[in-house]
Amino acid sequence: MAVKAYLRPKSPSEALALIEGDERAALIGGGAYLRLASRGYETAVDLCDAGLDRVRVEDGALRLGAMVTYRRLETDLVVRDCSGGLLGRCVENIVGVQVRNIVTVGGTVAGRYAFANLTTALLALGADVVLARGGRKPLEQFLADKAPARDVLVEVVVPTAVRRSAWRDLTRVRSDFAVLNVAAVDVGGEVRVAVGARPGVARLARGAMQAAAAGDARGAGEAAAAELDFGDDLRASADYRRRVCGALVTRALEEVLA
């Protein structure tokens, strides 16, 4: 299927109207993986003019527009201060500056990519997503949605009460997708741990969070390794992931609990 039309709607609702009821229309966020997509669409709906590239703090929350780029997460001082640097750190090694200049928060989250470091970090931070039609819901719920409706992700809302945060990932070469990634945060006194690239999409490690609440970083590592599911892929085996999960969770928590 060749792309026949390229549209740049001026708002999320306009974008929603373009894709609703048109299975041949697809949203373009960053566009980074444009060439990889099977081009199974005829109408490209580019969100670049939809006013979604804003970063703002409102009602004690950091609101990241869907078209905010990874590079912005690294360089924007507001983002850095709000997340204890976690949102910048989790994306700073992804490919190169060029790619981080086009990859977007919304494209990543909406794609539910299992390998995405950002999703792991946002999950640990307890972020919500805001959809043009579906409204606001917790990221965890959004990720678990098995049959998502056609919608436009407008923004991601991140709590700002982050006291400490830690990021750990394991990659082959530095710019590669993670073999495993771990985010641990202390948000307003609650310690939260998420583990992604297992290689499944990021999940909260609730057992590890319990152990962490008791100050037991080592126990939290063991709990995470025991409670999460791990799989084989090109980058590593399930067995290896399980074994290093404990070490990475423990190390991340040692930093957060210190």
Binding site: I28, R35, D46, Q98, V99
Partner: peptide
């Protein structure tokens, strides 16, 4: 796949991989 950097151009002064930027953008 936007992995190598050989197609880097500046778009409004910002370096981007031109293989991953839709021409209409």
């Amino acid at each position: 796949t936007a992995s190598c950097g050989t197609c880097t151009v500046l778009l409004d002064g910002v370096p981007v991989p031109s293989c991953a930027v839709p021409a209409p953008r």
